[in-house]
Amino acid sequence: MTSYSPVARLGRCSFENRVPLTVHLELTSRCHLNCIHCFHRGAPSRESGEMNAEQVKELLESLETAGTLFLILTGGEPLLRSDLWEILEEAKLRGFAVMLFTSGTGINREKGARLAEFSLFSVHISVYSSDPERHDLITGVPGSFEKTSLGIDNLLLNGISPVIKTPLMDENYNDLDKLRRWARKRNLTHKIDPVISPCYRKNKDRIISRRISREKVCETVFESGIFDTGDFRPREKLECGAGVNMAAVDSCGNVFPCLSWRVPCGRAAEEGFERIWEVMKPDYSHLENCFSCGVLSYCGICPGIASAEGPDFFCGAASDTADRLRVPVNTVSSQGIEIKEDLG
């Protein structure tokens, strides 16, 4: 009989029982940075009001009942909410493992100490480059690198070792090695995101124009060593956890299958999260051809991103990957890929 690790078991049982184990909650879409790749710019959530602290607390109650364990508080910039502390308090009382996504720019000594009181599961900070000018070029705010670095120092002073996140773009791709060294010197975990997401159709052109080429994405994936270490697990199915064991809620309370798959399914404050969750069913009709695709195993397709821009980017990347791994492929298009019989 297979014996599963607690992590694998939790993943499997939340998937099989449709428990929203992980929920991204955007506390605000306001931010003091103006990043060139940010999907909030011009997004609908900027046009209507944020949930107030009471509404957020009600939502946390529903999420607790629904079985959410990992709560990711994100923005915009969550630290811009003056009631953030009240929300963190409630989240702790309700037994969530809380992750906080922030730019770090607002974390002074006092806030660093205060954050340490909440036993957060992790704090993730976006750093785009170790070159201050280049980082600031991406955030659109001069001096932001310095503030972010200071925020990181204030967390470290309080015993929180933040995870550094870097979405890759043409603007910072060549700085990656230096940034890795910068993070290593500070003993910080560093994660990269090679495919930035438009999240909304209306952002498609602006964000895709910033994305690194699919050749570079492929290079980055191979460089990570995943195919050499035996860590690579062929994808078994197209469906992901969106709307199955994860969900996202924006600052106005709109519920989505995932942060990257922003098809509104209802408003938590009006309909209640549990009711929305009960009937949520992600629609895969935009990926009809993927179901019979021959290289699905090597494809990193994100159904959410593909709902905003189509699957072509992923098709190309899957075909590049299959080529490099010498998986024989004869047709590559968004119409699906077929594997050619390997006669060799």
């Binding site: 939340s14 079985g67 959410t68 364990l69 037994g95 969530f96 809380v98 599961f121």
Partner: peptide
Amino acid sequence: DMAARLID
């Protein structure tokens, strides 16, 4: 300080 949930 522990986070906990009853699932299945």
